[in-house]
Amino acid sequence: MRIGTRKSTMALAQTAEIARRLTLAAPGLDVEIVKFETIGDTDQTSKLLMHGGKGGAFVAEIREAVRSGRLNAAMHSLKDMPGNEDTPGLVIGATLPRESPADALVLRQGLSLEDFRRARGKGFKLGTNAVRRAAYAKRLFPDVEVIHYRGAADTRVRKLDDGEMQRLPDGGETGPADALIMARSGLERVGLGGRIVYEFSPGEMLPAVGQGIVAVECAAADWETRRALALIDDTSAHLCCDAEREVLWVLNGHCNSPIAGHAVIAGGEMTLTASVLDESGGAFIESTHSGPASRPRELGRAVAFDLLEQGAAAIIARTRVEV
């Protein structure tokens, strides 16, 4: 089985875990990891919106290799996969058990959490490329300056510590950053979990849809690959995946929309919370519903329709820009 992945340290670690699980579940299966350098990896300056969001920057090229038959499957971080558009001929064949979906604060070496708390972010430059994290940061820390910041997880932390400026799409520069907001799971995957000084609760910063879940995508008609992937599929993570992504589908949320969603399962019941913000963090709506975990898409639709009734469509329309 040929599995495509990005060349980043995190992506390779995720794909190696998929290969490990597959060879344990299906002894004798030959798994080959095929590395891709996507446009999102080579262009560390532009905003991802310029490449069609994370889907265009990190997913599209590897997906096309699956469609053409050059790959049997592709590894994606679920949060990078567009949820508002069809993916003809492809299905998520497996999801690994969900790691922490939380966002975390990382500070430049020499700064402490007490420094940040005392200033409440005033005078701090906080780096992120995620519009959702930026919107929540502006709500939590009105005085912080949120700056455009790109790079793989380990690259971003190195740039933070080195005081490196971030190049901007217009040719200018911004920075250096004093702090970053990043996914806890990503930091841990690259061995930087010890740099986390604070973990945001879902009530403070609701995670991105699919955050902490690794997905394996394959051709819908490739039943041999689908049978193999089914052996490593985590049912709980897949149900949460379906519920959260249904919110994106109904809302038609695009890559510049600060939309968040997080599902948890307790017993046979799932609770799903989702939110929509504007880029400034000023406008904010949220909805929580519970229902049978066995019907995740229905729950996702209920939450999404509630958000629409509260005005989500207007907020999302304001964040839709032409490029």
Rank of each mutant, 00 (worst) to 15 (best):
E224Y: 14
P207R: 10
G151R: 09
G171D: 11
M165H: 09
E286W: 01
L180Q: 12
V216C: 10
L206V: 12
A293D: 04
L272I: 12
M205A: 09
S290E: 15
S287P: 04
G203P: 00
L248E: 11
E269A: 09
R227N: 12
D178F: 04
G268L: 10
A283R: 14
L180T: 13
A243S: 04
D233N: 14
V157E: 08
G193L: 03
D162E: 10
T288Y: 01
L206F: 13
H262G: 08
L251R: 02
D234W: 01
C241F: 13
H254D: 07
G291N: 08
G191V: 12
L192T: 03
A293P: 03
I265S: 13
R158Q: 15
R167H: 11
K159T: 12
G186S: 14
A230C: 05
G175E: 06
D162C: 03
S290T: 15
G212V: 05
R150W: 00
R150Y: 00
E246R: 05
S280A: 13
G210W: 03
D154E: 08
E286D: 09
E246A: 03
N252S: 15
K159F: 15
I181S: 03
E269K: 11
I196C: 07
S290A: 15
L251W: 02
F200S: 10
L187I: 09
G268K: 09
Y198G: 04
S257D: 15
P292N: 03
E244H: 05
C240V: 05
C241G: 06
R295S: 13
A152W: 13
V247Y: 06
P207Y: 13
G194I: 01
E217D: 07
L231C: 04
D162L: 09
I213R: 00
P202M: 10
P258I: 08
D222H: 06
D154I: 05
C240A: 11
D278E: 05
F200H: 07
A230V: 03
H262P: 09
P292T: 01
L248A: 07
A152V: 12
Q166L: 11
G186N: 14
R189A: 14
